[in-house]
């Protein structure tokens, strides 16, 4: 596979969320607003890319029987670093993300890419694969965060868009339901629907 394909394919035909269905938990929980969604996307990209690189460097020395533990240790060390950085520089966002930063450890994308790619590929390819998958995950997070903050709060990154446009004066109301948990699930369902109707190969045969 060409290097550019490794980076590009997670955006569409092997997107971690809509096609591989990995890493759903955090994708739904942190997207009520745009800012935490972007911070989360960056954190996950960093963790996936670096853990892919490290595991790929170690792949010939890890005994297969204990590989899960080794992977968990590498990933949790990286997540602790990310968590400390977030607490130091963007404390309010890190409070908002609460347990979900810690849950990057058990984010299925990380473990999934380690098992499926890094254990059997060269370090550079693995780094690119991690980067691609992290960004493919990030793009869905940003779309969800954008839609939910705009229609739920009428703001973007805290900036009151709808108020400036004067929509409230002509009788517009915020749809508070978009911020609630169930709507996140329905929105992901709709994104999957749109993507699969444009790309028929992805449909499930059942």
């Amino acid at each position: 596979m060409k290097k550019i394909d490794i980076i590009k394919s997670p955006f569409n035909k092997s997107n971690p969320i809509t096609v591989q269905v990995l890493g759903i938990c955090s994708c739904l929980a942190v997207t009520a607003q745009l800012k935490p969604a972007v911070v989360m996307a960056i954190s996950v990209t960093v963790v996936v890319a670096l853990s892919n690189l490290i595991i790929s460097l170690l792949r010939n020395t890890i005994p297969p029987r204990i590989r899960i533990i080794v992977q968990l240790v590498v990933v949790s060390a990286l997540v602790i670093l990310v968590n400390q950085v977030l607490m130091a520089f963007v404390y309010d966002v890190s409070k908002q993300l609460s347990v979900y930063v810690g849950l990057i450890i058990t984010n299925c994308i990380v473990m999934g890419r380690l098992e499926a790619f890094a254990m059997s590929n060269k370090p550079l390819d693995s780094l690119l694969d991690g980067l691609g998958n992290g960004l493919g995950y990030g793009i869905i997070l940003v779309i969800l965060g954008f839609v939910r903050e705009l229609f739920g709060n009428g703001t973007l990154w805290g900036y009151p868009v709808f108020e400036k446009l004067g929509l409230y004066n002509i009788g517009y109301e915020n749809n508070g339901f978009v911020i609630m948990a169930p709507m996140a699930l329905i929105l992901v369902g709709i994104i999957i629907w749109i993507q699969r109707s444009r790309n028929k190969d992805l449909c499930e045969k059942c």
Binding site: P182, L185, I186, G189, R196, K200, C206
Partner: peptide, 23 residues
């Protein structure tokens, strides 16, 4: 179910509806 929604898609939407019930 529309073919593009089969499998994962509809499961997400149903989980959302169950979530509304649990709300």
């Amino acid at each position: 179910i529309p073919p593009a929604l089969k499998g994962v898609g509809i499961t997400f939407i149903i989980t959302g509806l169950m979530g509304i019930a649990f709300m």
